[in-house]
Each structure stands twice: as C-alpha cells, then as structure tokens.
C-alpha cells in the first residue's frame, strides 16, 4: 500500500541538515580564520564550485555497486572517522553550554541512543524525522540570529576580500570538504521518486545550504571581532547569547540547545544509517540491520579516545587539505563508464 520512495523535500532537508550541521559547531569560526572578512566571497565561490561538481554528476547513471568495494571501504573509513569526531565535538559542546555537571559518558550515551535508534528506524524514519524537525531547527536558528541583528556590526564584513583573493580561492577549494556528506546523496538515488525529483532535491539542498551557511557565518563575523571570540562556545551560541530581552524569558541560549541537539541527533542517526547503507550496497548484503551495530561500536569507540580533542584540532588543520577531493572526485567512482542519462 505504501512505497519506500523519498520525496524531494525529505531528501532536501536530510542533506541540508547533514551539510549545515557543522555550522552549529565551530565551522563559522574556522571559515573566518581562513578568509577573514572575505568569507562571504569564499562561500559564494565554494558554492559555485560545488554546483559545477553537482551539475557534472547529477545526470549520470549511478548504480549501487559503482563505488567498488575498495572505494566503499575508503569512504566508510572516512565517514566513520568524521562521525566519531563530530560525536565527540557534540558531546564536549553540550557539556560546555548546558550539562556542565554531567560526565562526558552520560552525554555521549544520550547521543549514542539517538544515533542507533535513528539508524535502526531506516531511511523512511530518518526522512520523516527530518521533514518535521529540520525546518524547525533552521527556523529557530535563523530567527534567533536575526533577533541578534541589532548587536551586529556589519562594518566587520569589510574589506570584502579579507585575507586576499589568493587565500579566498585556495581555501574555497580546500573547504569543499564541507560537502563531504553530500557524496552520500548519490547513494540515495534509488530511493528517489524519479530523476527529476532527485535533481530538484540536489539543487534545493545546495541552495538552502548556501543560504544557511552564508547567514550564519556572516552574522558571526559581524558579531565578534577575531580577538573577541576566545571562549570555547560554538559561534551561533555566542551570537544567541547576545540576545537579552523579555519579562518571561530573558535569554535564549537554551533554545539553541534544543535546535542544536535535534540537529545533532538527526545527523548521527542519518550518518550511521548511510554508512551502513554504503557498506550493504558495496558488499551486497541482503540481511536487514545485522551489521549496523558493529559500525555503531566502531564510531563510539573512536569517539571515546581521550586524545580526540587534539585529533579534532589537528584534523581541522591538516585533514581538510585532502578531504575536499572526496565530494569532487569520489562520485567518479560511482559512474558507470559512458552511461549518461538522456
């Protein structure tokens, strides 16, 4: 009576959350550090590059086995490492902004519950959860950021070329690693209703992500000068802390926590499912969720490594230098030679 196909909006919100999620963490700060006040130009350039990549791939016939076993294992390893790092970042962020008395294990345990439940609920459950909460998350975040607009100093966005054209151009390419998760978009093509819906979802994903990333990053740059934001709080949280109003509600930091944790839960569940999906397709496993738990354990174990904070810092500095190649080049492995949809 019902089909397992995913609609355009479901697919769009799923990937908008996967891409923009890191901007609720420390990505805006990192962007500013690379391009200074020229971040806006850099984001535009990044999106032009990404659109070019997407336009190149979007009409290609992508089959579930095109990655090849080796390609899939490489991608799975990258994603597992990436999700483990993100999980650790989430945990530390929640500890800093809200549950200061709770242990890291307790906080991470809650994230793990959400991650495993999400992955077990399958693509339909993940998409339905995204269609409910993703618009809410972005609406809350944007409303809060706009509410703080009175505190923003837009002069901080000048000079528009920031650290220089060369820096902007180089970093725009390197920071394509922001779209790492977008690589997985291609693996969901079989779930899409039709080719048209798939392409529309891809276009919408990139457009909405562009808008969200641009607003968040520029508002952050306009809020704090580089030297002022030394606290270990996520940039969006710092912006929201500027708001102070109301007779019944004074500050809205906790609303950030709601939106942030919703986004994180959805991200973790979706990523674990997609990693498992990638593995299942590569090795043509027919069974249902038997191999899901091992992946969950690998991610959890990795994220529990004590020195991971240093790894996070190191990875931001060094790993992104080559990670950009994944969204740009990896889909090449997906394409069957000479197979282009007319």
């Amino acid at each position: 009576m019902t089909c397992n196909k995913i609609g355009t909006l479901e697919l769009t919100f799923l990937f908008v959350n996967l891409i923009c999620n890191k901007f609720f963490l420390f990505a805006p700060e990192y962007f500013r550090a690379t391009a200074g006040s020229g971040t806006g130009i850099m984001i535009c350039l990044m999106f032009l590059l990404m659109f070019a990549v997407w336009s190149f791939y979007k009409r290609r016939n992508i089959t579930k086995t095109s990655f090849g076993k080796m390609g899939s294992i490489f991608l799975i390893a990258v994603f597992i490492f990436s999700v483990a790092l993100t999980l650790r970042q989430y945990t530390e962020t929640v500890k800093v902004i809200s549950l200061t008395q709770a242990s890291l294990y307790f906080i991470e345990g809650i994230f793990i519950i959400a991650m495993i439940t999400g992955a077990y609920s399958g693509i339909k459950g993940i998409c339905k959860a995204h269609i409910f909460y993703a618009p809410l998350i972005f609406a809350v975040m944007l409303i809060l950021i706009v509410s703080a607009s009175g505190k923003l100093d837009f002069y901080m966005l000048t000079p528009v070329f920031g650290n220089g054209i060369q820096s902007i151009a180089t970093n725009a390419l390197f920071l394509l690693s922001t779209f790492l998760e977008f690589t997985l978009f291609f693996t969901l093509k079989p779930f899409s209703k039709d080719e048209k819906s798939f392409i529309r979802a891809g276009n919408l994903t990139l457009l909405i992500s562009f808008a969200v990333i641009m607003i968040i990053t520029l508002c952050y740059i306009a809020s704090f000068s580089e030297n002022a934001s030394v606290e270990k709080y996520p940039p969006v949280f710092q912006i929201i802390r500027l708001i102070n109003s109301g007779a019944y509600f004074q500050r809205f930091d906790s609303l950030f926590l709601i939106a942030f944790s919703l986004s994180a839960y959805l991200y973790l569940g979706a990523m674990l499912f997609l990693i498992w999906h990638l593995f299942k397709n590569a090795f043509e496993i027919e069974g249902k969720n038997a191999v899901l738990m091992p992946f969950a354990f690998i991610i959890i174990s990795t994220s529990f490594i004590n020195a991971l904070s240093d790894v996070i810092t190191a990875s931001i500095k060094h790993v992104d230098v080559f990670l950009w190649a994944i969204p740009v080049l990896m889909p090449l492995l997906l394409i069957k030679k000479g197979n282009k949809i007319q």
């Binding site: 809200s98 549950l99 519950i113 339905k128 909460y133 839960y265």
Partner: peptide, 30 residues
Amino acid sequence: TAGFFGITLGLVISAYILSHIKSLGVPLLS
C-alpha cells in the same frame, strides 16, 4: 534527567517510532 537535551531526544525518537506505525498499511505520518 538531561533538561532540554533529554526532551529533544524524546521528540526525535517519537518521530522515528511514529514513522513506522501504520493504520491498515497506511503510515500514520502519511
């Protein structure tokens, strides 16, 4: 137990569960 952080966990899991419930084969969230 965990403030808003815990409540949002409940909301997300509820959405996952609801997405799997069907009424005579029709998903409740159709």
